[in-house]
Amino acid sequence: MISIVVPCYNEEESIMLFYKEMEKIRKKIFVDFEYIFINDGSKDKTLSILRDLAKKDNDQVRYISFSRNFGKESALYAGLKFSTGSYVTVMDVDLQDPPELLPEMLRLIREEEYDCIGTRRVSREGEPLLRSLFAKQFYRIINRISDTEIVDGARDYRLMTRQMVNAILEITEYNRFSKGIFSWIGFKTKYLEYKNIERIKGETTWSFWSLFKYSLDGIIAFSEAPLSFAALVGIFSFLLAIIMMFVVAIRTLLFDDPTSGWTSLVVIILGIGGLQLFCMGIIGKYLGKTYLETKKRPIYIVKETENDIK
């Protein structure tokens, strides 16, 4: 059986279209499906549609409804935790993850003994130019400063063995970055490439700012390079101060020309002060993430499941 984990946030227009497309695939590959829809605090009719679908197909369809919006990372973790299949796949409900790749993914795992078959986009047609530019730069930066390789264009859409899923569930950190976790745990992985597919219905809830914050979370979660950068800035500032001290002393003793100038002094103070605040901000981000981890808050809170309507 394949467990299909599907995070949903305000996806009332896409759920039934996704379900119908996946049923076509199920009939082709003759494998049982277990749908696990996660309602991540939706404000539209997503939950009522999931209730109706679970009643209609109570052998295959399950759902988890959160008490509020906890984010996609929490939804992914909950779906993996509730899954029971021998294989587990993570998919977006908007059909940007092509279901027709699933038979080939299953074949590769069975015949070539892969632990995971992932997918990656080789184009970003239809995506805003600024978002595409920043996405490429993010992958370039994080792969230079992190020991964990994150494949450019890699999607959360992948088919995994139960062994790999269990390994992911052992990572219970509160601040999650699944793309990094998938790579960090290892296992034999192959990527299938495809061109970008636009949403069938609705609008994305990922704004540029939310993606930017998500990328920062990924950098902080899988790299200590920003901390090293802050330390290097401090060392450079100290060495520069020593050099300038000698320069001022020599000018005063040999040329009787003490350094003067209120403007230059203010510029230096503001410059050094700005660098200090910037470095403190970097340290503060790491400290804040550590603070959240020490609270041991749950990654998500379940309000309702399909069992509550039976």
Rank of each mutant, 00 (worst) to 15 (best):
R251Y: 00
R120A: 08
I38H: 01
Y194K: 00
C8A: 14
F30A: 14
F212A: 14
I25C: 13
K310D: 07
L270D: 07
M244F: 11
T204L: 04
S215F: 06
E203S: 15
R131T: 11
E73W: 05
A249P: 00
T119P: 03
G118E: 02
R120N: 02
R124M: 10
L292Q: 15
R199I: 12
E34I: 08
F246W: 13
K303C: 04
G234D: 14
K81H: 12
F182E: 14
T148K: 09
K136P: 01
A167I: 08
L80S: 04
M164R: 14
K179V: 08
W209P: 04
G71K: 04
E21Y: 09
I4D: 07
G218Q: 07
V5R: 03
L169W: 09
Y286E: 09
G202K: 04
K201T: 09
V5W: 01
I171P: 02
L240R: 13
F212Q: 09
E293V: 05
F238Y: 15
S207W: 03
I220G: 01
T205W: 10
Y286L: 04
F66T: 03
E111F: 06
Y114C: 02
E11Y: 01
T89C: 06
Y291I: 14
G85L: 02
I36C: 04
A135Q: 12
F222D: 02
D57Q: 05
T89L: 00
N10L: 00
Y9H: 03
P298Q: 01
I25Q: 12
P99G: 13
R68L: 04
F66A: 02
C279V: 08
E100P: 06
V122E: 00
C116A: 13
I168K: 05
R199S: 14
E12K: 12
F187C: 04
W206G: 02
S86Y: 07
L239K: 12
F212N: 08
L50D: 09
I250C: 02
S215C: 14
D94R: 03
E21L: 12
A75N: 08
P99T: 15
K55H: 14
R144A: 14
I272S: 03
P128A: 05
K303H: 08
M1Q: 08
L130Q: 15
W262T: 15
F177R: 09
R51Q: 06
I185D: 13
E203H: 13
E304I: 02
K295N: 08
S74Q: 06
Y63I: 07
P128F: 01
T119N: 02
E111T: 05
V122R: 03
I49E: 10
D257R: 15
I29Y: 07
Y286S: 09
S132R: 09
I2N: 02
D92A: 13
F236C: 14
R51K: 11
L211N: 10
R176A: 13
Q137S: 12
